[in-house]
Amino acid sequence: MATFKDLEKTLQDNPALLGELLVNPAVALKKARIELTNKEDVRRLEGFLRLAQTQIKVSAGLVGLNTGKSDWGIGAGCCNGRSLTKLDWVIDPQR
């Protein structure tokens, strides 16, 4: 048994868990050995994930393509010359 606070602490220690939570919450919670049984905690998690999704959509709107050389090495696959970056990076290459 765990609470939403336990989940928050786990996320602080392992931020990569957020991606897992948004992709597949049930599997992510199981992997993190967190079982939320309290309805209130489940609602808090739902609210948190909804907010996270909104934030992600906003961030996605700030993403641009930086057309630069994609460095490559044998055994690592090929072969394209673009990378994702935040738009202010594209505007300000000195950063």
Partner: peptide, 19 residues
């Protein structure tokens, strides 16, 4: 998928070269 989600949520200040 998790990589993209995390990159966007945390607004990681790095360029991602990815498919």
């Amino acid at each position: 998928t998790s990589l993209i989600i995390n990159w966007l949520y945390f607004q990681c200040d790095i360029e991602l070269q990815i498919l």
